[in-house]
Design a protein around this nucleic acid. Structure first.
Length: 506
RNA sequence: GGCCCGUUCGUCUAAGGGUUAGGACACCACCCUUUCACGGUGGUGAUACGAGUUCGAAUCUCGUACGGGCUACCA
């Protein structure tokens, strides 16, 4: 049977595209692709109050960067649209009314104040959050209590109302979760969830079931936070379309921050990104930095995400997207939540940078340099530089720190590291070396040999001269081996930097 | 409070009745390197607790504790 999975997004990136959200997308994608199925993306924009401008574009940009392109969506087309829930509004009411007709749901006319009053009245220490359930529904204003006539009158008067599911009083709802196995719920403990809101929009509960049916979804995967509302969805499937047509469920474990479920606040608080890409909240202007901008490669990002809650049973940790598709299996997804570890995340990125060919890194590094006002005119040089420094870079911006001095002379030199041990002998050595460079074979080994020969000749330990040389070329105590740097810098530049620095040190 | 899910090194995890409980990140030491890193070698470090089943339990069962999620006309 053809497999089809879907992922849904609220119209706010904070509701969907933090680490946990992207991982949910990833697992859905991997599962679909593994079995040659389709991956569908739906926008669940039913709550106007939470709508954030630009969020939808941001969601698709993120999917694109991650390489998790949907087969069906608002942007990619498909024959099961519309893929935006607000555009499907018309069809939900008929399903809700069908449920009322069949006795599985009812109209409720309670105002916000009525509900608050009810909660206040029933609130005790034993029951801090009272539910609208079988214990109170007969005391409220709804079509279960009102006569048919009264109900009809209210409806024709246009009284604001919602449609609620009528949870059975004594029933056990069971289903099989692909990750957790059999799960049971007592319906008497579940509340009468709103299915259709007063504005005519469905809640998630109704929408997910109706849309999954209409879009012929075969597998419904989502985060563990949805587990408590699963019995509502199971019952809706039973009432509306039949349990035999219900998709198979799986609830993924949560990704945890240092304190429970990862929140967007955790990023700022603990200094690591929680979103795939930069997001500026249009209301607060607050910028939340993304993994992309922080310098992560998409391959590394999905790799580390995939391993947060799944592994293939071997000791392999680095997987390409293709390997993930091949090796992914729902059976090996864990049931326990995983705490996100930024240090390990950076390790994944480092591994990927090391594995990347120079050519694949080139455009990223170029952009990075131009953002830092460093002009790269020589592509061949850039390639050599990348291959020389990439093993030392954990995040893309490390390239700037590790190699900007190849393209422009250091603005300041760490003279403090040199001056205390600087003397006439050393000065003379470098004057002589700069001259000797004219006739030196121009490669790292040749440079090193002539450097050491000259040092011996002048009776200075080469080791004492290497640090000053490095500071002259690089500006500080970092970077690749100094003779490799000189080789790539070229004769003129090397001599020029030596001469500039001699004046500075003296 | 109620319901649901969970519990192996600090973190991510392997081991689906029999292993000196394995690997990775982080940390520490040494080596390499007269820069900073990378890399290499080694080390510290875990089955939440209590019963039960069994010749034998991290693994199966029950209880306890702890953690997390949900408890909205949000998703």
């Amino acid at each position: 049977m053809a497999k089809k999975v879907r992922v849904r997004f609220a119209p706010s990136p904070t509701g969907g595209l933090h680490l946990g959200g992207v991982r949910t997308v990833l697992y859905n994608y991997l599962f679909a692709k593994k079995y040659g199925g389709d991956f569908l993306v739906r926008i669940e924009d039913t709550d106007q109050s939470r709508y954030v401008a630009g969020a939808e574009e941001y969601i698709f940009d993120t999917l694109k960067w991650c390489g998790l392109q949907p087969d069906e969506s608002v942007q990619h087309g498909g024959s099961y649209g519309p893929y935006r829930q607000s555009e499907r509004k018309a069809s939900y009411r008929q399903y809700a009314e069908q449920l009322v007709k069949d006795g599985y749901a009812y109209y409720a006319f309670d105002t916000t104040e009525d509900l608050e009053k009810m909660r206040l009245e029933h609130k005790t220490e034993q029951n801090p959050s009272p539910q609208y359930d079988h214990t109170v529904r007969m005391k409220m204003s709804n079509s279960l209590v009102l006569s048919t006539e009264e109900t009809q009158n209210k409806l024709s008067e246009g009284t604001r109302h919602v449609i609620r599911i009528k949870m059975p009083e004594q029933e056990t709802v069971s289903f099989t979760d692909m990750i957790r196995g059999e799960i049971h719920f007592e319906t008497s403990l579940v509340d009468d969830k709103v299915l259709l809101k007063a504005d005519g929009m469905p809640t998630y509960h109704l929408a997910v079931v109706v849309d999954d049916h209409l879009m012929q979804i075969s597998h419904a995967f989502r985060g563990e936070e949805w587990l408590p509302s699963a019995p509502v969805h199971i019952l809706l499937w039973k009432y509306l379309f039949g349990l035999e047509h219900m998709p198979q469920w799986a609830h993924f474990p949560l990704i945890l921050g240092p304190n429970g479920k990862l929140s967007k606040r955790d990023g700022a608080k603990y200094g690591f990104p929680v979103f795939a890409m930069n997001w500026t909240d249009p209301k607060t202007n607050e910028l939340i930095e993304g993994f992309k901008e922080k310098g992560f490669l998409p391959d590394a990002f999905i790799n580390l995400l995939a391993l947060l809650g799944w592994n293939d049973g071997s000791e392999q940790e680095i997987f390409s997207k293709e390997e993930l598709v091949e090796k992914f299996s729902m059976e090996r997804v864990h049931s326990a939540g995983a705490k996100f570890d930024y240090e390990k995340a950076k390790w994944f990125n480092h591994e990927w940078i090391k594995r990347y060919e120079v050519g694949s890194l080139k455009s990223e590094v170029k952009t990075l340099f131009s953002n830092n006002n460093i002009t790269v005119s020589d592509d061949a040089l850039l390639e050599k530089v990348i291959s020389l420094v990439k093993d030392r870079c954990h995040l893309l911006p490390d390239f700037v720190q590790q190699s900007s001095f190849f393209f422009q002379a250091p603005a300041t030199l760490d003279t403090d590291a040199v001056k205390p041990k600087w003397n006439e002998d050393k000065k003379n050595f470098f004057i002589a070396y700069a001259e000797k460079l004219g006739s030196t074979e121009w490669n790292a080994a040749g440079l090193e040999n002539s450097f050491k020969d000259l040092a011996t000749e002048k009776s200075i330990k080469p080791g004492e001269l290497q640090l000053p040389f490095r500071i002259m070329l690089v500006g500080g105590k970092f970077g690749p081996p100094v003779f490799h740097i000189a080789e790539l810098l070229g004769k003129d530049e090397t001599v020029s930097r030596i001469n500039t620095a001699i004046n500075l040190f003296s």
